[in-house]
Structures are given as structure tokens and as C-alpha cells.
């Protein structure tokens, strides 16, 4: 027990340099970009004099030497202050908090449903190995895997929103409508179907393939053969013995994918006008709102690092050998 605790503590300690390294890299990368927020504000107002641009730059501290800006940034990070957005003039934390919910709803729904369906299909394909079900599932998974997500989203809009008119084409809720709590949830759900479906299909394909491979690997192992010899049914073996162990690689992948959630959603959020973090990242980038961008990247990397830590711990629980290593 103590060894497991110290293992967790050790992994947790490793998180700190990782997060700091990410902060440094983000800072360097973003400051290599030509133009800054003062340029954008001046440009958007269409009329700024050189003095106005200079004054903006001065009041944002963008005229300071890079190294000074860097220490200001790190200093703020250490006090968990993410700063104030240059373009929107509001605290970054607030801006992120406003968008986090939408992204979480979209992502958790997509991934949650996808993992569920993917695992079942994966097990099914593995049980029916080399049957036409297996082939059909594999081909389908491959096709979905090969489809550009944003394009799939557009096609779903054409079909379900325009032609059939059963789902809204974008947004997260019906604006201005005064719904009770139940209707509000249903309303969001209706808006959620197409974007979550677009994202989810991809993950269904991914997890089906992964689970199938993982199951096939395990079904050849000795202890399964033993179970078979004892006369257990294939179905029972699959669900009780094999599935638990086949889950290991899935959990690892999930950990890695938490980070990709944000990225995957840029395209889908753009297509569906979903008010989440992905759009915020893109807008911040295009407007050179470095403070906001650094804030989002920092938060998302912290989330990824923490999730990976969690995955390691869960892994350790599922497979005690690893923790001891």
C-alpha cells in the first residue's frame, strides 16, 4: 500500500516540471508569431494612428523585452493568475469558464457514447472473428476512420437539418426561448445530436478497432483456454475474463485523447457553431490574443497531465505489476 502511495506521489511530482516546460514552450512558440494584439485592435478599428497602436502596446506591456514579459508571465502563473484577455479585456479564467461547459458536454457525450458502442462492437467482432459481421464492422470502421470530420459534419447538416429538418443546424440551444428545466435539457440534447454524432462516429470506429484487436490478443492466452476447457461459454469468457484485461490499452488511449479532445473539437465546433473552447482557441489565435491563448493551452495541458497521472494510477490498480516497476 505504501509503495503504491509513493508511486502516485512520485508521478504527481513529475507533473510539475512537465507543466512548466509546456508553459515555457507555449510562450516561446507564440511569441514567434508576427504581429500582436495591439496590431489587431488597431487594425479592427480601421483607423488607428501610430500613437494609438504604440499606446496600446505599452499598456499591455507588449513593448517590454521578451525576457521581462516571460518572467511576468511565469510570475503570474505561479500565483495561478492567467491574466486579462488583450482583445476582450476580461479575465482569461472567466472566458475559459464560460466555454468549458459546452466543450465538456459535447466531448463527454461523444466519447462516452462512442466508448460504450465501440467496446460492444469490438467484442462482437472479436467473438465473430472472420465472420461477415466481423468483416462488415471492420470495413465500416475503416470507412468512418477515413472520413474527414468537418466534411462529415457538413453532410450531416445537409441531410438531417436541411433535407429532413429534424435537427437544428447549429448552436447549443434555442435562443430566447423560455423553457422549463426539462425542456432546456431536451433542447440542448436536440442541438447536441449532430455535433456529438459527428465526433462520436470517429471514436466509435477507433474503439471498435482497438477493442477487437485487444480482445483477439487476449482470447489466445492460456487462462482463456483453461476457462474454455472448463466448459464456460464464449460469451461469459468474453465478458468476465477477457474484457477486463482488454480494457487496458483502451484506458491508456483515453488518457492520451483527453488532450486531443480540444483539438478535435476546433473543426466540429466551427462547423456547428458550438460555443466551446475549440472556437475560443482559434479566435484567440487569429486575433493574437496571446494572454488568452496561453491561458487556454496552459489549462488544457494541466488537464492532460493530470488525466495521464490518473490513467497511470488506474492502470496500476488494474495491473499491479506495473506499479511495482
Amino acid at each position: 500500500m505504501t509503495s503504491r502511495l509513493s508511486y502516485v506521489a512520485l508521478r504527481a511530482l513529475q507533473v510539475i516540471p512537465a507543466v512548466l516546460a509546456i508553459a515555457v514552450l507555449n510562450f516561446i512558440l507564440l511569441h514567434m508569431a508576427p504581429g500582436d494584439a495591439a496590431d489587431v485592435i488597431a487594425g479592427l478599428s480601421g483607423h488607428a494612428s501610430a500613437e494609438m497602436t504604440a499606446e496600446l502596446r505599452r499598456s499591455f506591456g507588449l513593448d517590454q523585452p521578451l525576457i521581462v514579459q516571460f518572467f511576468v508571465y511565469i510570475g503570474r502563473l505561479l500565483t495561478l493568475d492567467l491574466g486579462i484577455s488583450l482583445i476582450q479585456s476580461r479575465p482569461v479564467v472567466e472566458l475559459i469558464a464560460e466555454r468549458m461547459g459546452a466543450t465538456l458536454i459535447l466531448m463527454l457525450t461523444a466519447i462516452g457514447v462512442a466508448v460504450g458502442i465501440g467496446l460492444l462492437l469490438g467484442i462482437l467482432a472479436a467473438l465473430r472473428h472472420r465472420s461477415w459481421t466481423d468483416t462488415a464492422l471492420s470495413v465500416l470502421a475503416l470507412v468512418v476512420y477515413a472520413t474527414p470530420q468537418f466534411w462529415l459534419g457538413l453532410m450531416l447538416i445537409v441531410f438531417f437539418s436541411i433535407t429532413l429538418d429534424i435537427f437544428p443546424s447549429g448552436g447549443m440551444r434555442t435562443i430566447g426561448a423560455e423553457f422549463g428545466p426539462i425542456h432546456s435539457v431536451l433542447d440542448v440534447a436536440r442541438h447536441l445530436v449532430l455535433p456529438a454524432g459527428t465526433l462520436g462516429l470517429f471514436y466509435v470506429a477507433l474503439y471498435t478497432r482497438l477493442m477487437r484487436t485487444s480482445m483477439l490478443d487476449i482470447m489466445t492466452l492460456d487462462y482463456i483456454t483453461t476457462a474454455r476447457a472448463k466448459g464456460m461459454s464464449e460469451l461469459r469468457i468474453a465478458f468476465t475474463h477477457a474484457a477486463r484485461n482488454a480494457l487496458l490499452p483502451i484506458v491508456t488511449l483515453l488518457g492520451v485523447q483527453v488532450g486531443h479532445l480540444l483539438g478535435g473539437s476546433i473543426l466540429v465546433e466551427t462547423v456547428f457553431g458550438w460555443p466551446g473552447l475549440g472556437r475560443l482557441v482559434l479566435d484567440a489565435l487569429l486575433q493574437r490574443d496571446l494572454v488568452l491563448l496561453l491561458g487556454i493551452l496552459f489549462i488544457s495541458s494541466v488537464v492532460v497531465v493530470l488525466t495521464n497521472l490518473l490513467v497511470d494510477v488506474i492502470y496500476g490498480l488494474l495491473d499491479p505489476r506495473l506499479a511495482r516497476k
Binding site: S161, S169, G170, I175, V271, F272, P275, R279
Partner: peptide, 19 residues
């Protein structure tokens, strides 16, 4: 009331208007 709907995609704006 005046309501602004923010729709990042041009095609989506058109669909919302058409509907």
C-alpha cells in the same frame, strides 16, 4: 428584445435565416 445569434459558419447563418 433584440437578439444576436453568433454562428461562425456562413452556411449555418444562411440556413438559420432561411428557416
Amino acid at each position: 428584445q433584440i437578439i444576436l445569434r453568433v454562428l461562425p459558419d456562413g452556411a449555418a447563418r444562411a440556413i438559420a435565416f432561411e428557416k
